[in-house]
């Protein structure tokens, strides 16, 4: 089975400073990779590199099928309705909207403007956007922020259904999603960049 994502020897920077180095990972279909580590370790920076938004300082990312990336801002327009928001992203990816609203428990809100949704409902809409992209690999940065217990369970159910259908996900999160039987945990603490690692441009050595 071919991997949906393969990364080798990544060095990841934030603000011009290396934060993680030597990160290698593989994500197979049907698997979930959970990124763990204290605040500031570089989870978001790593996810952005995996999504292709930022280049790594070193190493390479191979992701043949593309990704669906969801960060804290979920790409929703408050003046559009739930249906219009989802239809736009589905159309852009050449996919049908399908049963995404039902699966994220948004069916009753379909004609409401996104501005009138609660924080948790907006978050669910943001996750429904992932469903309509039709992408197999999801990259999720703290996806359960502002979700209540029931919504977290709903979200875990959606992830389970996604990976059971051959999808995969890389999730940066602190909480347990109850997906232990199909997930690996990557502790990023072990990949912390050493201070001696070259700063870009070699400015720290300029005077030695």
């Amino acid at each position: 089975m071919t991997a949906l994502l393969e990364a080798k020897g990544l060095t990841v920077e934030r603000g011009g400073v290396p934060v993680l180095e030597g990160v290698s990972l593989t994500v197979e279909p049907g698997r979930v990779l959970v990124l763990r580590g204290p605040n500031g370790i570089g989870k978001t920076s790593l996810l952005r590199v995996l999504a292709g938004l930022a280049p790594p300082l070193a190493g390479e990312v191979d992701c043949p099928g593309g990704t669906a990336y969801a960060a804290h801002a979920d790409g929703l327009k408050p003046t559009l309705t739930v249906a219009e928001n989802l239809a736009f992203w589905a159309d852009l990816h050449g996919q049908p909207v399908g049963d995404a609203p039902e699966r994220m428990n948004l069916a009753g809100l379909i004609d409401r403007q996104a501005a009138s949704l609660s924080a948790g409902q907006k978050r669910r809409l943001g996750l429904a956007r992932l469903l309509v992209t039709g992408r197999a690999l999801w990259l999720l940065d703290e996806p359960t922020v502002s979700l209540d217990t029931a919504s977290v369970a709903l979200f875990a159910g959606v992830i389970t259904a996604h990976v059971e259908a051959g999808g995969a996900a890389v999730i940066a999160t602190h909480i347990a999603l109850g997906l232990e039987d199909r997930s690996e945990v990557l502790e990023l603490g072990g990949y912390k960049a050493r201070p001696a690692t070259h700063a870009p441009g070699g400015f720290d050595e300029a005077f030695q």
């Binding site: 011009g16 400073v17 201070p195 400015f203 720290d204 300029a206």
Partner: peptide, 19 residues
């Protein structure tokens, strides 16, 4: 400009060593 960048690089390194 290079000196300014070096100061930034050294500050960043110091932060990482402290952390």
């Amino acid at each position: 400009e290079i000196r300014l960048r070096r100061i930034k690089a050294l500050e960043a390194r110091a932060r990482m060593t402290d952390a």
